[in-house]
Design a protein around this nucleic acid. Structure first.
Length: 581
RNA sequence: GCGCCCUUAGCUCAGUUGGAUAGAGCGUUGGCCUCCGAAGCCAAAGGUCAGAGGUUCGAAUCCUCUAGGGCGCGCCA
C-alpha cells in the first residue's frame, strides 16, 4: 500500500513537471508513513513540505496541486490536504478487509518477503570464550543474534549462523591450568589455588572427569609444580604456572588437559544455547586458522602489500593509515601471533567464503576493536563496508536493589541456564529483545523470577491461546468454522475494534521489513504487544460466537488471521505460541 | 586525558530515522465476570524528553557546549 501511494505521488509530480524530484524522494526526506492519528487518514506524505522548499512556494498550495494531480486508485478512497501541507490518504475499507484473506491464504508465510533476493549473509554472534558457562550477559547477544537471523531469513536472505570458538590463547591456557590444578587437588596434592585462576565449581567437574580418564597420568608433586615460583602472584604467577604445566606435561599431555577443558565447556555452551532455542550452522575454530596456516597467509599478504613494519622485535600492521587510531601488533616479540592476527585471518576467511555481507554481533566493550578489523580488511583490499558490526550493550544485573557483579574468573555469575530454568525460555527470550540493543539493559533477577507472570510475553501468548480457546468453544457448541462464508461476509466487520485489529494485522509485513532493515528486533516485540492489545480489546467488547452465521464466520476469519500473525511473529522471536496456558 | 555509547512519567522502556496533541508495561486510584479463558478490558492521575544554545515551516529526534552514567584506549583474548 505504501508503494502504491509512492507511485501515485510520483505520477502526480511528473504531471506537474516536477519529475526531477522523483527517484530521490527518499533521500530528500520525503516519507510515506502510517499516521498516528486516525483523523489524519491511514497514510500521510510530507512530499509537499519538502519540495515546496526548493520551489519557494507555500507547502499548502503545492499540496493542493499535487492532490489534484494524483491519478487515483480503486484502493484509495480520498486524499486530503491537512496541517502545514501534509497529504493524507484514506484507504478504501475494502482494501483493509482483503488483508484477512491474505493472511489466511499465506499462513506461516504471511509477512515474509523476498527483499533479500537470496543474498548470502553471515551472522556471527555470542562467540564467548569457552572458559566457562554462558552467563546472562551472553544471553542478550544470543537472543538478539537469533532474532536478527530469523528476521533476515524472513526477508529472503540466505543466512548462515556462526559461532567463533576462541580455542587458543592465554585465556584458554588459564582454563587448562585451572583444570590441572583442580585435578592435582583430587589426586591429593595440597594446592594453593591461585585467586586469578578460574574459580567456578564447573572446573572441579572437568578435573574429576580428567582424573577418571588419565588416573594419575598427569600427576606431579605440588613441590615440583611450584618449585622456584615463590613470591610470584597474580598474572605473573599464572603465566609461570602455565609454563610449568607445559614443561612438566609435555605437548601431548598438556593438549589433553587443555582439550578436556575446552571440549567440556564447549559442550556445555552448545547445550545451553540449544536449550535457549539458538542454533548454529557453523562452529568455527580459531585454532584451525593457525593449523591451516591461514594466519600466516594473512600476515604474509599484509607484508607483501607493504602494510607492515618491524619495531621492537615485533611485526606491526600499519592500521593508522586505514583509519585506526594506532598501529597494531601482528607477531609479538616472542614470535607468537596475536589474537588480532587470527581475527584478520578469520575475517579474510569469511569474505573468501563468498558472503555478500558479514555481520558481527559484539558486546559493546569491544567497540574499540571495530576500526582495527575494518582497517585490516581495507588494507587487504577488501570492501570493509561489507562487514557490519552490531554492538550490544551489557546487561547490568540486579537482585532487587543490589547490583550483582559478574566475572567468569571469580566464578560469580548467573548462568544463562539458571535464568532459563528459573524464568523459562519464552520469558527470557522476549525480555532480552524488547529493548533496543544500544540501551543498557537492567536485568532484575528477583523481578524476573517472582513476577514472571507479569512478563509481557504472556500477554501475547494469552491472546494466541484465547483464540485457540474460542475455536474449541465453537466445536463444543456444535458449530464449524466456514471460512468461505466468512470471507464473503467480511464487509460486516465495521466495528471500531474490528477496523483497529485489521489495521494492526496489515502492519505486520511492514514491521518485518523494518525490523530486519534496521536490525531492531524490539520493533517486532513491541508490535506483537500492540496486536495482542487490539485483540484483547476486541475480545472484551464483542462476542465472536454469535447466532448470525455470516457475522460469526467473518469474525472467526478475523481472529484466525490474528492468531496466525501472532504465531508468525512469535516464531521469529523464538517464543512458543501455546494453544492453551 | 582522548574516543564511542547512553540520559524520555515514581520504576522498566517505546517513540515508525525531522512531522501533526510525546506513548506503553509495572506501580497508584476507580470501575467491569448469570455471556467465547479476568494471565483480560475500560478509565483517571503522573512529563521543563538531563540542561543551555543553534539549524527550519516543524526538534525527544540533527549540530555545538555543559552535567551525569556506561564502555574502551595491551606485544590480553
Amino acid at each position: 500500500m505504501k508503494n502504491l501511494i509512492r507511485e501515485q505521488v510520483a505520477v502526480a509530480l511528473k504531471r506537474l513537471d516536477l519529475g526531477d524530484a522523483d527517484g530521490h524522494l527518499a533521500k530528500r526526506g520525503v516519507r510515506f508513513e502510517r499516521t498516528r492519528d486516525a483523523r489524519h487518514g491511514d497514510f500521510s506524505a510530507n512530499v509537499a513540505l519538502v519540495v515546496a522548499k526548493d520551489l519557494g512556494v507555500t507547502p499548502r498550495a503545492l499540496a493542493e496541486r499535487i492532490a489534484s494531480a494524483l491519478p487515483g486508485s480503486p484502493s484509495i478512497d480520498r486524499v486530503e490536504v491537512a496541517g502545514a501541507g501534509f497529504l493524507n490518504f484514506y484507504i478504501q475499507p475494502r482494501y483493509w478487509l482483503g488483508i484477512i484473506q491474505q493472511v489466511l491464504a499465506a499462513g506461516d508465510a504471511f509477512g515474509r518477503n523476498s527483499t533479500g533476493a537470496g543474498a548470502k549473509i553471515q551472522v556471527e554472534f555470542v562467540s564467548a570464550n569457552p572458559t566457562g558457562p554462558l552467563h546472562i550477559g551472553h544471553g542478550r547477544g544470543a537472543a538478539y543474534g537469533a532474532v536478527i537471523t530469523n528476521l533476515l531469513e524472513a526477508n529472503g536472505y540466505a543466512v548462515q549462523r556462526e559461532y567463533y570458538v576462541n580455542d587458543s590463547g592465554r585465556q584458554m591456557d588459564i582454563l587448562a591450568l585451572s583444570v590441572w590444578l583442580r585435578y592435582l587437588e583430587l589426586c591429593g596434592e595440597a594446592v594453593d589455588f591461585p585467586a586469578s585462576a578460574y574459580q567456578g565449581a564447573y572446573i572441579i567437574g572437568i578435573a574429576r572427569a580428567l582424573r577418571e580418564e588419565v588416573q594419575a597420568g598427569c600427576q606431579y608433586p605440588i613441590s615440583a609444580v611450584y618449585n622456584g615460583l615463590a613470591g610470584l602472584d597474580g598474572d605473573a604467577l599464572l603465566d609461570a604456572l602455565i609454563a610449568r604445566a607445559k614443561s612438566l606435561l609435555g605437548p601431548v599431555r598438556y593438549r589433553r588437559v587443555f582439550d578436556n577443558g575446552l571440549n567440556s565447556v564447549l559442550a556445555g555452551i552448545r547445550a545451553d544455547l540449544s536449550e535457549f532455542g539458538v542454533r548454529y550452522d557453523q562452529w568455527f575454530s580459531e585454532r584451525s586458522l593457525a593449523e591451516t596456516q591461514a594466519v600466516d597467509r594473512a600476515i604474509a599478504k599484509l607484508q607483501s602489500l607493504g602494510r607492515t613494519y618491524t619495531k621492537d622485535g615485533a611485526l606491526w600492521f600499519n592500521a593508522r593509515a586505514f583509519g585506526d587510531e594506532k598501529d597494531r601488533v601482528l607477531v609479538r616479540e616472542n614470535g607468537q601471533t596475536t589474537y588480532f592476527a587470527s581475527d584478520v585471518a578469520y575475517h579474510t576467511n569469511k569474505f573468501e567464503r563468498g558472503f555478500d555481507r558479514v555481520i558481527n554481533i559484539w558486546g559493546a566493550d569491544h567497540h574499540g576493536y571495530v576500526p582495527r578489523v575494518k582497517a585490516a580488511l581495507a588494507a587487504l583490499e577488501e570492501d570493509s563496508d561489507r562487514l557490519e558490526v552490531l554492538l550490544v550493550q551489557f546487561a547490568t544485573l540486579y537482585r532487587g536493589e543490589e547490583r550483582v557483579q559478574m566475572s567468569t574468573r571469580s566464578g560469580e555469575f548467573v548462568t544463562l541456564r539458571e535464568l532459563v530454568d528459573e524464568v523459562g525460555r519464552d520469558a527470557a527470550r522476549f525480555f532480552y529483545v524488547t529493548r533496543r540493543c544500544e540501551q543498557h539493559l537492567e536485568f532484575d533477577l528477583d523481578l524476573a523470577k517472582s513476577q514472571s507472570a507479569d512478563n509481557p510475553v504472556y500477554y501475547i501468548q494469552y491472546a494466541h491461546a484465547r483464540i485457540a480457546s474460542v475455536f474449541r468453544q465453537l466445536a463444543e457448541q456444535g458449530w464449524a468454522w466456514d471460512r468461505k462464508r466468512g470471507e464473503n461476509a467480511v464487509a460486516v466487520l465495521t466495528e471500531a475494534h474490528e477496523q483497529g485489529l485489521i489495521g494492526a494485522i496489515s502492519r505486520y509485513p511492514e514491521i518485518i521489513e523494518a525490523a530486519a532493515r534496521e536490525r531492531e528486533p524490539h520493533q517486532l516485540a513491541q508490535y506483537l504487544r500492540e496486536l495482542a492489545n487490539a485483540f484483547h480489546g476486541y475480545y472484551s467488547a464483542h462476542m465472536f460466537l454469535v447466532e448470525d452465521e455470516s457475522l460469526r464466520n467473518a469474525r472467526l476469519n478475523l481472529i484466525a488471521a490474528t492468531q496466525q500473525v501472532i504465531r508468525n511473529g512469535l516464531a521469529i522471536l523464538g517464543v512458543s505460541a501455546p494453544e492453551s496456558m
